[in-house]
Amino acid sequence: MNNNEKIISRKSPPERSARMVETIYGCKWSLTVYQLLASGVQRPGEMVRSVEGLSTKVLNQCLKKNIEFGILDKVIYNELPPRVEYQVTEFGQKFLHILDELEKLQQEIDA
């Protein structure tokens, strides 16, 4: 082998982002939460009331997972009674764009 030859190393999959996509798609309610946020529903109580079958416990688990990934941000207002709202982060906007592209790809596959 001479010095002009290029050596290409083995490319590995993006571990963390692939796991994040898998976890979000594996969560029954994450995509629904994103729809709620896009339609202006930001408070957890309103989310539970808006979706049949969604419990507070499951919603809280879903929101926590999304916060840990950096997709959502929890905003706590210093009021009485306490008020909590959720919003999509800048990173979350990029991530949701990728999910939209995956959905378009699936539609092409199905067609």
Rank of each mutant, 00 (worst) to 15 (best):
Q42W: 03
Q42H: 15
R43M: 07
G45R: 11
V48E: 06
V48N: 11
R49M: 08
G53T: 03
T56N: 02
K57A: 10
V58S: 09
L59A: 14
L59T: 03
N60T: 11
N60P: 01
Q61I: 07
L63I: 07
L63G: 15
N66P: 02
N66G: 13
E68G: 03
I71F: 01
L72F: 12
D73G: 07
D73I: 04
D73Q: 14
K74A: 04
V75F: 01
I76F: 01
Y77S: 10
L80V: 11
P81E: 06
P82W: 05
P82V: 15
R83I: 13
R83D: 05
V84Y: 04
V84A: 05
E85C: 06
E85R: 02
Y86V: 13
Q87G: 04
T89Y: 06
T89C: 10
F91H: 04
F91V: 08
G92I: 10
Q93D: 11
Q93T: 12
Q93W: 06
F95G: 08
F95W: 07
L96H: 00
H97W: 01
L99W: 00
D100P: 00
E101H: 04
E101W: 00
L102D: 00
L102K: 04
E103R: 11
E103Y: 11
K104C: 04
K104A: 14
L105P: 01
L105Q: 05
L105K: 10
Q106N: 12
Q106G: 03
Q107W: 00
E108W: 10
I109V: 13
D110T: 03
A111R: 13
A111M: 09
A111G: 14
